[in-house]
Amino acid sequence: MSGQPMILEVEPLANRFVRLEPFEAGLEAEVRAALDCDQDAWDIMVGAAYGEHFDGWWRSALAAMAEGSRIPYAVRRLSDGVVVGTTSLYEIKPAYRRCEIGSTFYRPEARGGPVNPATKRLLLEHAFNAGAVRVEIITDAINPGSQAAIRKLGARDEGVLRKHKITWKGRVRDTAQFAILDEDWPDVRGRLDARLAAF
């Protein structure tokens, strides 16, 4: 694989818990309904997608998908068929065989169960099968819960990027950065499979 670019196909991804569906016009209403809640959680995010903020966010996600820098997904919980959130592969850099997992939001009732680990399992497998050598996961340095969830995946803590982003409310944020490398993936995959087997 060395020297070959990473090629991430835009396609649905599924396991027994979730189906990740790339954004398209037919999903807009379901995604809007999934994200229109929990304003407090949105307040610390870089961008907001609830209420009146949704339309601009949706257009931006589709534009980034069209230019190849992002694949935004609706996260459909298979136990009831409901779209419970969104996630993305983004900052896609084929020449460097690198991308990020992020722009993730789940409805409160979908947090803490199999949805997030099942989603991360699919995204990581998709990236590494496509030739990635590095997948980054970043979060706000003031969000310990998110950082704990990322560490639980087996991602390596790489430190804090100071004054890295500005939230939609104007706060200059520090970013906690994590990464999983291709050589880490077998161990991370085993951890995720063990966690998911418990559900």
Rank of each mutant, 00 (worst) to 15 (best):
Y106I: 03
R16C: 09
L78A: 01
K93P: 01
L122D: 01
Y106T: 00
R134L: 12
M65G: 02
T167N: 10
V18P: 04
F105A: 01
L27P: 10
G113E: 13
V18L: 04
S69V: 14
V18A: 02
P72M: 10
L181F: 07
E21L: 15
I92L: 08
A61S: 12
V133H: 14
A34N: 05
K163F: 09
E52W: 05
L20Y: 00
V84E: 03
L62G: 04
A148E: 09
D174F: 15
E30H: 09
H126E: 00
T86D: 01
A14Q: 14
G131F: 07
V82C: 09
L153G: 02
G145W: 08
E158T: 05
G102Q: 04
I101L: 13
W42A: 11
A132D: 07
D43S: 13
I7G: 03
S69D: 08
G102H: 05
R151I: 06
M45E: 10
R76D: 00
E28V: 01
L20E: 00
Q39F: 15
E91F: 13
V18C: 09
R156A: 14
R171M: 08
R111V: 09
D157G: 04
R111E: 11
L62T: 06
G112S: 02
K169G: 11
R189P: 08
L192P: 12
F54M: 05
